[in-house]
Amino acid sequence: MKLREISTGSRIAAASPGAGTEAPPVKDDLASLRVVPARHYARWVAAAAVSVLVAQFAHGLITNPVWEWQVFRDYVLSETIVTAVGLTLQLTAYASVLGFLLGTVLAFMRLSRSPVLQTVAWSYIWIFRSIPMIVQLVFWFNLSALYERLGVGIPFGPVFWSIDSNSLIGTIGAALIGLSLHQAAYAAEIVRGGVLAVDHGQLEAAAALGIPRLRQIRRIVLPQAMRAILPTAGNEIIGLLKGTSVVYVMAIGELFYQVTVIYGRNGRVIPLLMVATAWYVVLTSLLSVAQYYVERRYARGANRTPPPTPLQRARRFVRTLRAAAARRNQPVVPLSLAGGRR
């Protein structure tokens, strides 16, 4: 495509004074010449080929009976599925919040001047990034085998109060702990990356002004770190949304588990997988839109003029269409006149 642009460039050069036979050597008249847009033949061929492939795929979606769209319709909004979607959302929300809270603490531990805190945080991240999520989840599921009772007391001394670990945690609790702890290890590195991306001068300025340490972090560092944190955090939360499907091994009634239960019963595997797919796509889309607006909020002050929102962009588009329509109803003004007026 680069070649194409170069040839466009040469065309303009040919139109410059004295170079072409028809171009008069007067500079002002250049404005009256008709501009011929470059033709991108390769682009057209590629577009056609891709269109055929897409059309084929869409045709298959509609005509292949194995998709069983009727079954999809029956289940996609059924009560079981909607409840399962709710649970998936809850697992995602709680694990994201807990994971990022713990992750933020770990990030600042790693950034602290205390070697003990640094080492503990580093080791946590090392361990929890090393264990596959599914292995960790099954561990938590079997916590009672490891510690039958959990209690409060003096370390290595007497225990004042204790409780059966199964009744304290439960299956969903175990899933949440597993997801959150796993998430925290990744979140810690994301937050740390964001904090490191903040200009050192910002911390110096805050310190020179005597702003208290916690306030420096909350008011000066984190809001600026968010610019670097958000794109990756968005990735992580979307990853977690789909990652919750792993807890089906613990027989928790989230979206994927329910889908497997239903197709285990009726054998309609493909349409039910499509039900899960559709919901994951919808939820991911919602998260992506939310991410866009959160990022926009934290971009305040980063640009001289903030970019328009999609809504503003749509309005602007409608306005240009209207203006174009209005212009079409007016008598045509020759281009040369517009150029000559300058």
Partner: peptide, 18 residues
């Protein structure tokens, strides 16, 4: 707390951009 008595102006301004 001591620094609140000492104003400091940096070469690169270091205003809080957000």
């Amino acid at each position: 707390k001591q620094r609140t008595h000492i104003g400091f102006v940096f070469q690169n301004f270091n205003l809080f951009p957000h």
